[in-house]
Design a protein around this nucleic acid. Structure first.
Lengths: 163, 163
DNA sequence: TTCTTGTTAGCACGAATTGCAGATTAGGAG
DNA sequence: CTCCTAATCTGCAATTCGTGCTAACAAGAA
């Protein structure tokens, strides 16, 4: 029972109720995002949108994504310095990233909510995010073939992968 | 105790042993990083370095940081899209971020290593990072004064969860 | 239909970081 | 100590990701 993004129609209603207009551009983006189950970048969504509505502006895509995030209808995920990705999964969840191909996968993490930081007693904690880094099965295969081993902590690699 | 970054002398030795040269620029940066116990950006470190060595290039700072990260002598932390910060704390630790002032604090999280993702059984997990978001005490005060409250999770999620 | 606003497109701009190339220098060989 | 060569430094251009601005445009109420 995953909470996915609202339907395009629901989003349209929400927009109207907030005094925002429901333009063709927004409708298309609502549609594309609703169908989407990975974690696209603004550019990727723009490419999809352009295919169906040539002339739509990248600016409009960014703007709509920001609005939706502000309204809590989608989440942003920032991992490793690459472009921001958006997440239509509104469920309380976490992420696994492949340090080879950059793929991001949603995961459930039992016990995450119970985690407690020691050393920040003066903070009012509001939210916790867990990110696992690893290698996906298909990248694991190519690694085995080329004899590479999984390198432990390597931020540099991580940075490169995300580009 | 906390495993801090290697001493400047140790880093110099490591550099030499890898066929890298120990230049005055690098020595200064080793020194500054070793002394540092917060999470500076490249720019911040550049500013410090410039004070002691006018004319040092920002490019050199970036280059040295990347080298050290590649060698595992420091970590990068990427939180929320701002400039990359580097972390001279090599211990196994996690972070708390103040969503108001952006302050980052190192914290220990007992049980973090035991976390397991469900939904990524085909990944070989290599590392786990936990990031808490919250409000630090001094920001909390200003919030109280201005009547703002800590924003809970996104409105949409809130609505759904409460059903 | 008309009017009022919110929106869009498009480009300039900005921050962060990297690519490039010529000038410079660390560090080993002689 | 001097010389030599590869590694390094600096400065600037280029790139990537995203936002500010504004004139033209269109959604939705009256």
């Amino acid at each position: 029972m995953v909470f996915r993004m609202q339907s395009p129609a629901a989003l349209a209603a929400i927009y109207r109720s907030m005094g925002r207009k429901v333009t063709p551009q927004r409708q298309l983006l609502f549609q594309l995002m609703h169908e989407n189950d990975c974690h696209p970048t603004a550019e990727a969504l723009f490419a999809e949108a352009s295919a169906q509505m040539p002339g739509i502006s990248l600016r409009t895509v960014y703007q709509t994504l920001n609005e939706l995030a502000e309204m809590g209808e989608l989440q942003f995920i920032d991992i490793g310095g690459g472009p921001t990705r958006f997440d239509p999964n509104l469920d309380d969840h976490h992420h696994v990233v492949c340090i080879d191909c950059g793929q991001i996968r949603d995961v459930q993490v039992s016990g995450a909510a119970a985690l407690h930081p020691s050393g920040a007693e003066d903070f009012v904690i509001n939210e916790v995010g867990v990110v696992f880094q690893g290698v996906c099965s298909s990248c694991e295969k190519s690694r085995a073939k080329s004899g590479r081993s999984v390198r432990a902590k390597s931020p540099a690699l991580q940075a490169k992968v995300s580009k």
